[in-house]
Write a protein that binds this DNA or RNA. Structure first.
Lengths: 213, 213
DNA sequence: CCGAACCATCAAGAAACCATCAAGAATGGC
DNA sequence: GCCATTCTTGATGGTTTCTTGATGGTTCGG
């Protein structure tokens, strides 16, 4: 029945009637979307989904007869992208498929832009910094300074550059503050084993990141 | 009440107070959107929806008092495009209508039904939040804030970000309100055993969700 | 080799920030 | 119109973070 609807909606469809056959078909055809019934002969639908996820990033839409919460949670936890509870209308199925394909994110939505340089990596949206795999606990100003440096990792920034970016152009005060914050960042980096010259001083000019090793 | 909100949002609104009158109005006016309460005098909301579907393709948004699964499933199966559970915030309603109209395919599923992060899971249509398997009883604003955070769980949102999303860009007032609501959410989370840093404060910046364990 | 400029670090007071509580205002349900 | 819930504002206290000033070491030019 589903095959008919989907074909009429313009999709190329391949049906499989048990878990192992389905899995093989996914491997062979590398489809855009898999529609997977939770109740399958031969293999649990959840298991099939888990297996698919080991080699494919395609969209998986689960069908389940029972609306029990546990099912849906389980489904999502093994990597399904959406689920539907029977009975559903063909119209809704088509709509859901459309929604999946339009979804640019998937798990990628959760991944925010990261800048890395050498052992450093910082997530600007989440404001997290790591050296290798260790998180650094930086204050706001420390983080802001580091992100300025990382933005052009080979450039030397004067204290004024840094003040302009982090404090804003209107700020008045001693540019020596920058030194203090840099010292703090260095200290925290050292505490997690960061390279000693991750932040270099350029005498008479300012600061820049060290070359990555 | 709804009529007021919708009019202020720029919609032309026609209200009807029972099923038959509503149906007749839909026939007469051929509206773009129908907002339909499941609890209606004179005729069941589901029946009204089914009838509408016999002659119209307009968007149907169902309102339901209780978030019982059966209601929502039934609603979707008779051809509703989305549903909301009371109590919802007016801005949420406006947002949903906007989403409906922008949607090329019609279905509640275009908005992914559930968002989860760590032990948190929230159902955006039903406006229900759970930690593990416990429901949280959040107010509108609390729910709205949490859904903003969950939308990009690794991002730090400033208070202004949150105000813009939840209160709308025009709002004037102390951004300190956000703190208070966050405190309330935290309290309710703690009451059901939620992870202590489910919502992190990022000093000097704002708030974000904690990493899932 | 000496002095001046420069930088790193420390410490302490000042400022900013956040959590929480409480009370009045607003809102929506009946 | 009244009542209960929810929202907003204000005040307070404790904590973190920022800034400044002082001190001592280092580098570089003369």
């Amino acid at each position: 029945m589903l095959v008919g609807y989907l074909q009429r909606a313009g999709f190329a469809v391949r049906a499989a009637f048990d878990g192992p056959n389905g899995l093989q078909a996914v491997r062979d055809l590398d489809p855009e979307i898999v529609i997977l019934d939770l109740m399958l002969p031969g293999m649990d639908g959840l298991e099939v989904c888990r297996q698919i996820r080991t080699f494919s990033d395609c969209y998986v839409l689960m069908l389940t007869a029972r609306a029990e919460e546990t099912d849906t949670l389980l489904g999502l936890s093994v990597g399904a992208d959406d689920y539907m509870t029977k009975p559903f209308s063909p119209r809704e199925l088509i709509a859901r498929i459309g929604a999946l394909r339009r979804r640019p994110f998937k798990s990628a939505a959760a991944v925010s832009p990261q800048r890395t340089w050498g052992g450093l990596s910082l997530d600007t949206a989440g404001r997290e910094v790591k050296w290798a795999d260790q998180f650094l606990d930086l204050t706001r100003t420390e983080f802001d300074i580091l992100s300025v440096l990382v933005e052009e990792p080979t450039k030397v920034f004067t204290r004024e550059d840094i003040l302009d970016h982090v404090w804003g152009p209107g700020w008045v005060g001693d540019s020596h503050v920058v030194d203090v914050h840099i010292a703090h960042i260095r200290r925290k980096l050292a505490d997690v084993g960061g390279a000693p010259d991750s932040i270099r001083s350029v005498r008479g000019v300012g600061y820049r990141l060290g070359d990555p090793q």
